[in-house]
Each structure stands twice: as structure tokens, then as C-alpha cells.
């Protein structure tokens, strides 16, 4: 076949491809870009939603999942990854996507209940079995003979929750920003290794045997105990901690382009259904509607007093600027002697 002949076939091939796509248009594909610790949760949730959507509309949905460090995932979306929905670790990451690409409406937080966070978690302490250093609360972390493991808040979203939890506690307990600053400085003096991500920090604590206490998300702490055996580690719940709200949002412009906006919105809304709320509790996330979940799962969560980022720091944007930007509070711990 000559080149010209082949060229003349091209329009047919293209039109054939287009029509075949139209014929199977009821097969919808959604891309959910999420972060590492939600892998198991969405693996269980996606089949539920697929059934639900099939019953409601008769359409088949295929859901693709992408997991990775929250910051990296958000960057991938900014750089052009065609996510229909994002389910990330902090509002700041979704704000960043909204701001840099304009693909997410700026009022995304108000579109779903509870600031668009269908499940929450909090920051707890993971200590070695028997709690040999007798760590009970945030105060104990700044004692001279304690080693604390937490990742670097500049490179890890999870670590920012840890940092803000500690800061919030200190500000409440000691009554001023100055004193909170001293406390944080003391705390990071006790950190021998700052891993770049949360999983790395868990490794350092669990595999390398370094440190007396690991600051961790509650769901991750439960998972660590489950996987490594309750004979090695235990969870200590501090007197007060931060309410971690991992938010979800539809990437409006991308979903509109894909024609998936309706199903994307339904997907996120379904996270608030009894089935999904029960599933979240099963995977150690605290559901925002605990009445819908299995009481046995809920009973695993200890009572804890929490504060939100909004209450203590105004917003994620503000917290980011004051604490984690260049020259901010975190940098000063190390650069100001």
C-alpha cells in the first residue's frame, strides 16, 4: 500500500474510532487521584459505588485509582494528570490545584458536608510495647531523653498535621505563641531523623528501631499495629489533638470536559452514604456520620478532644504561610540559634 493510499484511509480510521466510542459511551471512566493511606479504603469503596451507579442509571463505571504522596499527587494534577476527582490529605493541596489550574471551583470546600471531608482522623502517638518511657501527652515529648520520629513538614503533608497538632496543644496549654514556639523548638531537638514522607518515618521507627515515639495519623497507627502485631507497639492518645480532615473535590473543568461531572459528584456524595461511612470506620478513619457505621468499629476509636485547623490557625493557607513557608516558624527552629 502506498503512503498516499494509507493517508486516504486515515479519516475512516478516525471516524470509526469516534463512532465506536459513541456506541460505548455508557461506559464511564473516572480517575480518582488520592494519597497513599487511602488505598485500601477506595479499593473497597469503588465496587460499592459501581453497583450503586449501575442500579441507579444502568451505566457501567470504571474507576481508576492513583495513589502516592499527597503533595506529589496534587502536583501531578497541576501538571496535567486528568483527574476527575481528587481525594487528598489536606485542603491546602486542593487549594493549590484550584489556584494553579483554575480547574476546581474556589468554593469547593462548601460543596459537601463537613468542609468536604467525609471521614476524619487525628494525630496520635505510637510507642513501643509497654510504653517504656511512659509517654502520656505532648509534654512528655520535649523531655530530654525522648526521641521523637516525625517526617519533615516541608516535604510531607502528613508531617504538617503532626506539627500543627503539637503547636495547637502548646498554644492552648502555655497560653502564648511565643511559648508554643519554644515548645516546638524543644520538640524538634528531640527528632533525630526527619524522613521526607510519612511512610519513611514509620519505617525508621518500626524497622530501624529508632526513637521512642512516632507521631502518626490514627488510621496509620492502627494499620501499623495490625500489620506488625499488637505485641510490639501500642497507641497512646494525647489529651488533645488536631482534627485531620482529608478533603475530597471534583475537578470541575476536567470532569466537564470528560462529561463525567454528574457521576463524579455522585461518587463523592456517596462517600457520605451509610455503606461508605461504615467502610471508612472499618478502615480506621473516623466517619463524619458515626451513627451510620458499625458501633463495634466506632468503639475502637478512643474519646479525644480535638481542634481544627480553622479554629487555631485560621486556614490552611495561613498555617502554611506562617509555619512552613521559607523563613517561616519551622525554618527558624533550625536557622535561628
Amino acid at each position: 500500500m502506498t503512503f498516499k493510499k494509507r493517508l486516504s484511509l486515515l479519516p475512516f480510521i478516525i471516524s470509526a474510532a469516534v463512532t465506536s466510542q459513541q456506541l460505548i459511551a455508557k461506559d464511564i471512566t473516572l480517575l480518582n487521584v488520592s494519597y497513599d493511606p487511602t488505598r485500601e479504603l477506595y479499593q473497597a469503596f469503588n465496587p460499592l459505588f459501581i453497583d450503586y451507579w449501575k442500579q441507579r442509571t444502568g451505566d457501567d463505571v470504571t474507576i481508576k485509582q492513583s495513589h502516592g504522596g499527597a503533595g506529589k499527587q496534587a502536583r501531578a494534577v497541576i501538571d496535567g494528570l486528568q483527574a476527575d476527582v481528587v481525594t487528598l490529605a489536606l485542603a491546602y493541596d486542593i487549594d493549590a490545584i484550584a489556584e494553579k489550574t483554575g480547574n476546581i471551583d474556589s468554593n469547593w470546600e462548601e460543596k459537601l458536608p463537613n468542609n468536604s471531608a467525609p471521614y476524619t482522623s487525628t494525630i496520635v502517638f505510637l510507642v513501643r510495647k509497654g510504653n517504656p518511657k511512659n509517654i502520656k501527652d505532648w509534654d512528655d515529648l520535649v523531655k530530654p531523653d525522648i526521641q521523637v520520629i516525625t517526617p519533615n513538614p516541608k516535604s510531607s503533608g502528613g508531617a504538617r498535621w503532626n506539627y500543627l497538632a503539637a503547636w495547637g496543644y502548646a498554644e492552648e496549654k502555655y497560653g502564648s505563641k511565643e511559648k508554643a514556639k519554644d515548645y516546638i523548638k524543644q520538640l524538634f531537638k528531640n527528632v533525630p531523623v526527619l524522613d521526607s514522607g510519612a511512610r519513611g518515618a514509620t519505617n525508621t521507627f518500626v524497622q530501624r528501631g529508632i526513637g521512642d515515639v512516632l507521631l502518626a495519623w490514627e488510621n496509620e497507627a492502627f494499620l501499623a499495629i495490625n500489620e506488625l502485631g499488637p505485641d510490639q507497639f501500642e497507641i497512646v492518645v494525647p489529651s488533645v489533638s488536631i482534627l485531620a480532615e482529608p478533603p475530597v473535590a471534583v475537578v470541575d473543568k476536567v470532569a466537564e470536559k470528560h462529561g463525567t461531572k454528574e457521576v463524579a459528584e455522585a461518587y463523592l456524595a456517596y462517600l457520605y452514604s451509610p455503606e461508605a461511612q461504615g467502610l471508612a470506620a472499618k478502615h480506621y478513619y473516623r466517619p463524619v456520620l458515626p451513627a451510620l457505621a458499625d458501633p463495634k468499629d466506632i468503639a475502637r476509636f478512643p474519646e479525644i478532644k480535638t481542634f481544627t485547623v480553622k479554629q487555631k490557625f485560621g486556614s490552611w493557607q495561613q498555617a502554611q504561610k506562617t509555619h512552613f513557608s521559607d523563613g517561616g516558624e519551622f525554618d527558624q527552629i533550625y536557622t535561628v540559634k
Binding site: 503533595g71 506529589k72 516541608k154 516535604s155 533525630p192 526527619l194 521526607s196 527552629i333 533550625y334 536557622t335
Partner: peptide
Amino acid sequence: NIPMVSEITPLMIISKLE
């Protein structure tokens, strides 16, 4: 990765990206 002690330059680039 302790600031001022054991942070390599490529890590500084990564933390800027984060």
C-alpha cells in the same frame, strides 16, 4: 534530613516542589 546538618540540595528542590 536534619535542616542545616544533613539535608542535600536535591532534597531542598523537592521540598520547594512540595
